[in-house]
Design a protein around this nucleic acid. Structure first.
Lengths: 206, 206
DNA sequence: ACCCGGGCATGACACTTGTCATGCGCCGGG
DNA sequence: CCCGGCGCATGACAAGTGTCATGCCCGGGT
């Protein structure tokens, strides 16, 4: 049986190269293409036909979760293993519903990565157990779409007026949504609500 | 001449292992020890006597900058190459004044890492040129020590009252420091000031 | 047909925040 | 020596924020 063809997507060139070095030490794995942006994943996959795609969640252009969705939609028979720095409970759920077969965080031992790739290639699911537990406990985002929008717009420290202008809403409405988001997150200020939402993966960071 | 002995410190096991794989492909480099926490660096160095220490800035236990300071203080004749995810201008300055010989960000090409290690080992300085330029433009933190304290305490979304309690200050004083920090950062709200300060490396993240 | 939840809005209220003036004590440089 | 910057504080004011009640419109369930 021929080597497993791997696509590698991570925005940090150093990490990407290092992962390539790590995987290329395994004789049955073959890194056939590397990309540094989420929006290059599908094209690269179409060209190089990998068996497994290793996708980082945090990437410029298009985040890894959306890239995973697109990759599944492209129907290239390529299985997906998400890799991420942050063990946000929400990410796991989103990744799985996006069609990923596996999810590992960047502080799992290096030895296990190759194995995870092999497992995913065999059609098995690979999930960090601790994270899976969190994810079950956690449940979905309690925020409505609009609340999420408002919270995201307020993320960088803008005032109510800024948010209202950005979303074409009245200031009062923005305050209502914020208030409701603050309530649902158990926070006491807007900033705290943002922090909680980001930590749970209900809101994209940065 | 014998191989260059390298110490590797990074909190993410996967990245650490991958970097080790990358470096071990070079015949003249030898990764003699890996650690995952900043406070294990000095002890590991004492035991394994590396020629070059590769330190991540973001680490639990003790951040990479402090670890670098300690390592220099230990006088083990070990040169330091900082590696970081974030190209915060402030980090470079702090790293250099901590006694590091080099500073690379994680999106430099993987090929260059081994070279950087060799350069540092030879006593040369290695600095990302783009970052160096930023650092010069940027200048030091305009914030006083107290302003930094207050901003840090307000980072996670606490109220003025919370900060005042935490720092044993009057609420009015906290507001004054915050106001001054907001002015100096060119921000318009506390949250924005925090964001600006973190992005410039004037305030540690998370 | 009915009700309920979400989105949107207004208006009002209490509270928090940001700003400013002012004052005091301390320290270090011209 | 005196001045300026910093830390700390108070008090007051304006602006921004969080909460609540209330209302309207819509779409999806029972």
């Amino acid at each position: 049986m021929s080597a497993i063809r791997v696509l590698l997507a991570d925005d940090q060139a150093l990490v990407r190269g290092a992962l390539a070095a790590l995987l290329s030490m395994e004789p049955d794995l073959d890194v056939v293409v590397e990309v540094g942006r989420g929006d290059e994943v599908v094209a690269a996959a179409r060209e190089h036909r990998p068996d497994v795609a290793l996708l980082d969640v945090e990437m410029p252009g298009l985040d890894g979760l959306s890239a995973a969705r697109d990759l599944v939609a492209a129907r290239l028979g390529c299985r997906i293993l998400m890799v991420t720095t942050f063990g946000r409970p929400g990410y796991l759920k989103q990744a799985m519903s996006a069609g990923a077969s596996g999810f590992v965080v960047k502080d799992t031992p290096a030895k296990q990565l190759a194995d995870a790739v092999r497992r995913v290639h065999q059609g098995l699911r690979v999930v960090d157990p601790a994270l899976a537990a969190d994810s079950l406990t956690q449940g979905d985002s309690p925020l409505t779409e609009r609340e999420t929008d408002v919270l995201r717009a307020a993320r960088d420290g803008g005032t109510v007026a800024d948010v209202a202008r950005e979303l074409f809403l009245s200031e009062g409405t923005v305050r209502n949504h914020l208030s409701s988001a603050i309530g649902k997150t158990g926070a006491r200020t807007r900033a705290e609500a943002v922090r909680v939402a980001v930590e749970n993966g209900w809101l994209p960071p940065s």
